[in-house]
Design a binder for these strands. Structure first.
Lengths: 230, 230
DNA sequence: CGGTCATTTGATAAACATCAATATAAGTGG
DNA sequence: CCACTTATATTGATGTTTATCAAATGACCG
């Protein structure tokens, strides 16, 4: 059984809506599980018997075409929720991009628990609404933005979302380390790896950013970058 | 005050979770409003003081870039819900594509009501989860599919979603009338109007469909269309 | 019937993908 | 710790797709 009171994401995950008593019940239902980088937790189209909270690491949500083309439709960080409550099949695959740890629940048991705990359900609703907003803005990026705009938008969003992780909690971070490589960036932006790479190289030579190592990004001119994001 | 018991979308809208007593209270909060085709109900980025149920007509959710490019990120049909509960700004514009009628609520009043009615909140959660799934599959289309695949996918989805409206409730309809023109199709698919038109013309000459009038579509070879959708 | 708007069609250009070849970094076993 | 191997990323040359610009056709409306 889990000791939720010492959970790292205790106050950020949806569990934060629960009283100590309720947490005890939920703790009995969940179990911690490590996921190796590259391992797929849920497969698109398969029955998905579980939902989970992310404790550590970064995972991707992927929709694939029959011929193998992939589009990443979501990136999941610690304290985020994964899985599809009130649904049977997983609408996308969930794969770890880094070594990760999740707190897993049986979906039916979770659904029942949620139905009896309106506060938890409201937290889930708020999160889902936020995700939907994010997804819809991403649709604008995918459908209407140029490669340059895509990459600029991506870097700015990453500098925001990775801020929670690091130390500088002052809004957004200019220097950060991406938890994944170029191909994944391409799969997020609906581009090829070559186009993605070329955009980054161009931005580097234009002095907008520097690339200290493969996965590190330092935004040197945020104003110009925001201009570029369209 | 509204008489919800006679509402056309009574059993399909989120209100269907409510008892007659509750419905009476909600009925007092809402008011019916007609919206002319082309009129914008909510503006992206503005404070959105209302949420609503769609009674009649079709509306679009639009995200725009600073230079005017538009991406349609959602299409809303009768019995669907519009607006952003638990949030202040509207993350996108909501514009009527046909003459429409909605049942409008003050957002704060609705949020409070929802917080006290878990069943309503669960209905809203389920709907939001469905919308999110749909949005994410649309991301795959926008990011990874070719123009041909986009148009084919679009026609197939429309034939499904418009079925509820018509008489043939046998799954999906091969002949249907789109509630909007070519430019809107382009804005849904992340294409230009010219490319969209060319794809349709090609499909027509390939015998996949016929175009009896501007807005009517008849799918003549569904199997081939599904093949094309990728 | 003429005018307006939406759509189609055509010619050309730009953006991005694809194919192919390095280059650079990250592991691995000696 | 260093050569060797492998994976990842960059760069270059070329091709395809889709956008853009421009014009013509067709539908709808008074």
């Amino acid at each position: 059984m889990n000791d939720c009171s010492s959970c790292i994401v205790r106050n950020r995950a949806i569990c934060s809506s629960l009283t100590p008593d309720e947490l005890l019940i939920l703790g009995k239902m969940g179990r911690r599980q490590k996921v190796k980088a590259g391992h797929t937790l849920l497969w698109e189209g398969d029955d998905a018997p579980v939902v989970a909270n992310v404790l550590e690491g970064v995972l991707k949500l992927v929709v694939a075409a029959s011929d193998g083309r992939e589009q990443i439709v979501g990136i999941v960080f610690p304290s985020d929720f994964i899985g599809r409550p009130f649904g049977k099949e997983s609408p996308y695959s969930v794969t770890a991009m880094t070594d990760a740890e999740v707190c897993i629940f049986n979906r039916n048991a979770f659904d029942d628990f949620a139905s009896e705990h309106p506060d938890l359900q409201q937290k889930l609703l708020r999160r889902t609404l936020d995700e939907l907003d994010r997804a819809r803005h991403w649709m604008m990026l995918l459908g209407r933005k140029s490669a340059t705009e895509k990459v600029a938008s991506f870097l700015l969003e990453m500098s925001d979302r990775l801020s929670g992780q690091g130390c500088n909690a002052d809004g957004s971070l200019n220097g950060f380390e991406l938890p994944f490589g170029r191909q994944q960036i391409a799969d997020i932006l609906g581009l090829t790896i070559e186009t993605t790479s070329r955009q980054l190289t161009r931005m580097k030579s234009d002095g907008l950013l520097s690339l200290p190592s493969r996965r590190e990004i330092v935004i040197r001119n945020r104003a110009a970058m925001e201009e570029m994001a369209g």
